[in-house]
Simulated assay, not measured.
Amino acid sequence: MIAEDFILKNYNSSVESGSVKWESPSNIALIKYWGKKENQIPENPSISFTLSNCKTITKLTYTKKDLSTALKVTSDFSFDVYFESEKNEAFKPKIQTFFERIEAYVPFLRDYHFKIETSNTFPHSSGIASSASGMSALALCLMSVEVDLGADYTSEYFNKKASFLARLGSGSACRSIEGELVVWGQNESTESSDLYGIKFDGEVHPNFKNYQDTILLVDKGEKQVSSTVGHKLMFGHPFAEQRFAQAHDNLAKLKTTLASGDLQNFVKIVESEALTLHAMMMTSMPYFILMKPNTLEIINKIWKYRAENISNVCFTLDAGANVHVLYPENEKESVLKFINDELAKYCQNGHFISDFIGKGAQLIEK
């Protein structure tokens, strides 16, 4: 599909009001995308596990503007944002930008006033990809409004357009619509698109079913550098082209690994990708070190535990200090004991979140 396929051409503008509520999960990339072109197009492909417990719940209420009001503010989008039940002005610029990017595909945006009520099941801006779950939940709500306004979509088209819209809010958000593994970015190894995430089409060995992800909250504060700024640092980066090629190569290797069930190879690919992501930030200009001392302590503890216990536990990182501890379900009891006994002390206030691989977003009410 091409971008023009997602333009809503006709809708019932007489609908006065309605509301819809979706929950959408975060995701954790195994192959990382870092660097993007215009219109939120990734420089390299990525693949992620969709999470289950770490999610955003968003209710969107829409009310038709009255004619006198509409004539006065035709150039404006009209919306209010409530985060954790409190009005939040800080989120408005990002949603304003999102609406500007998607208006060509969602032309009813200026016809209505929107009340956006959103909350997370995890700390905002803590490196658990809150923009991914948040923007995907909002995109899904807007897709449900399209249906309210008379659109008749297959579930496949609905999900693809939701992913397409979410990408224009936050790149990684396009990987949060479906589960369990989602690919984004054109490549030769899998069915894929630069425009939206696609459910991984390869074989997945039982070893990777119901995979576990425990997120160690090393630092719950705002990230030192936003992902938007970080992606821009790939322009002119001395190692950018080699990194993009590496991601393609690692995705091909991971596809083979997921089919074979080779857990040791999975560990090597995933940890290498995480460290490469941070290496790109440390070698950009300006440069950043987003890991904290406790991040490194945790990584070394994981390596020691894995060697001593013949375990398949491993780590991955997003663009922040927190550590995602990945492990197969059959190691859940022993790894959680290890986390409680040895790793929790490196977390802020001892906090961590136990999660596992999920099925994607869900409609809560309409």
Rank of each mutant, 00 (worst) to 15 (best):
T118N: 01
N159S: 12
L140R: 08
K64N: 02
V20N: 04
K59Y: 05
L343V: 05
E84I: 03
S176G: 09
E241C: 04
A321L: 00
E178G: 07
L277W: 01
P93L: 06
K115R: 15
T121L: 01
E43P: 00
M281F: 11
N300F: 10
G221Q: 14
F79A: 06
K304C: 04
F235P: 02
T276I: 06
L363H: 12
E180R: 14
L71E: 13
E297S: 13
Y211N: 09
S155F: 10
K332E: 14
V81E: 05
V270T: 12
L60A: 09
L30I: 11
G350V: 02
L251E: 11
E297H: 02
I128C: 04
R306L: 08
T56L: 00
L275Y: 06
C141E: 07
E86R: 08
D355R: 08
T295F: 00
S170Y: 05
D66Q: 05
S119R: 10
N10R: 09
F77K: 09
E333G: 03
Y105P: 00
V225P: 00
S48K: 05
T256Q: 15
S19M: 15
F122N: 12
M234W: 03
H205W: 02
E203N: 15
H278S: 03
M282Y: 07
I102A: 08
H351S: 12
Y305N: 07
S126R: 05
M135W: 02
E178M: 11
Q224L: 14
A166D: 07
I31K: 05
Q264Y: 15
V106K: 03
F91H: 13
V323Q: 03
L168W: 00
I57L: 11
G169F: 01
N39M: 06
A139L: 07
L296Q: 01
S52R: 11
L168C: 03
L277N: 01
L275R: 04
I47M: 11
F200Q: 06
K37A: 09
G185P: 03
K72Q: 14
P206F: 04
K199G: 12
G261E: 10
L326M: 14
L216W: 00
E342M: 04
T256L: 11
F288G: 11
V73D: 15
V225S: 11
K36N: 11
D318Q: 04
L71G: 10
S119H: 07
K21W: 10
I47E: 03
G179I: 03
A3T: 07
G360S: 12
L290W: 09
K65L: 15
N309G: 04
Q264R: 15
K59S: 14
Y196D: 10
D66E: 14
E271S: 13
D148K: 10
S125Y: 03
F79H: 02
W303H: 14
N88K: 08
F49D: 02
S136C: 15
E103C: 02
T50S: 12
A279V: 01
N12Y: 08
K94S: 10
T256I: 10
A3Y: 01
N207C: 14
L181S: 14
R175T: 07
S24Q: 01
D355P: 02
I95S: 12
S334L: 05
V225N: 06
F338P: 01
F266H: 10
F288P: 02
S130H: 08
G18V: 04
L149N: 08
D76E: 15
C141Y: 01
A274M: 07
W184D: 06
A132D: 04
L275S: 00
